[in-house]
Simulated assay, not measured.
Amino acid sequence: MPGAVVRDQHGEALRLSELWSQGPALLVLVPAAFSTHCTAELGALARDVDRFDDAGVQLAALSCDPVPALRAWAEERRYPFPLLSDFWPHGAVSRALGAFDEELGTSRRLSLLVRDGRVLWSLRNPVDRPRSPAAHEEVLDVLRAPG
């Protein structure tokens, strides 16, 4: 999975390992661009982006939507972090993470805090239950914890 290459909302190729090459990264998988819960989740992260930046955490979201949909969503909502497309091969990264919903053809709700290629924290929620802002802020506590 770290060697996987995805495209950001501008169509630029990004190797997932580049996300955490400069420090910890929070990768947030969402089912669908423009959906109510996904928009709320990413909106909360966007509002708190300074807290993550101050802690040196790179934020990124990933969905199985195509690049043009992610570009439109990012522009409309002005998300200050990359939106990554797992569109083709469809859901390959989500599958590798055990977070692909075969029935819906989307990513499941999964958040991963990764540092040096190691998962330090994760959170899974059902597709119909968004993650709370407080849940994502737990990663800041994880990074502050000794050891």
Rank of each mutant, 00 (worst) to 15 (best):
G43N: 04
L14F: 12
A134H: 11
R109L: 13
F81Y: 04
D65S: 13
A46T: 04
A40T: 13
A46L: 03
W20C: 00
L140D: 07
G23V: 15
G3R: 05
H10A: 14
L70V: 01
A72N: 07
E103G: 05
W88S: 13
N125W: 13
F87I: 14
L123I: 11
R77N: 08
V114D: 02
V127A: 11
A32F: 11
L59Q: 02
P89A: 12
E75I: 07
R15T: 14
G43A: 05
F100D: 01
R129W: 08
R118T: 15
R109Q: 14
W20V: 00
S35I: 10
G56I: 10
P66D: 09
L45I: 12
V119R: 04
A61I: 08
V119E: 07
V5W: 08
A145D: 09
P126F: 10
E102C: 09
V6S: 00
L104P: 03
L83M: 14
V28R: 02
P2Q: 10
S107H: 07
L19N: 01
A40H: 12
H136N: 11
L45N: 06
L62E: 00
R51I: 07
G3S: 15
E76W: 14
R77M: 13
H136W: 11
A46F: 04
D101A: 14
S94P: 07
V114R: 00
R7L: 13
L14E: 08
M1K: 03
L14M: 15
A96D: 06
D116E: 15
M1R: 05
P146K: 09
D54I: 04
A92I: 00
D8N: 15
R7W: 04
L123V: 11
G23T: 08
W121P: 03
A72K: 12
L83P: 03
G43I: 01
R115H: 11
G23C: 14
D48Q: 12
C64D: 05
H136I: 06
P82Y: 01
S17T: 08
P2V: 01
E102G: 12
D53K: 14
V57R: 03
L29W: 02
R129Y: 09
R108I: 02
S21G: 12
R15G: 07
L45P: 05
L45W: 05
L45Q: 07
Q9W: 06
L27P: 00
S35N: 10
W73L: 03
S94N: 09
R51A: 15
A134C: 04
E41V: 10
C38V: 11
A13H: 13
R51H: 10
L42Q: 04
R15H: 07
E138C: 02
E75M: 10
A60T: 02
E12N: 09
L110Y: 04
L16H: 00
L19C: 03
D116Q: 10
V93Q: 01
V49S: 11
F100A: 06
V119P: 08
T39W: 08
L143H: 06
D65N: 14
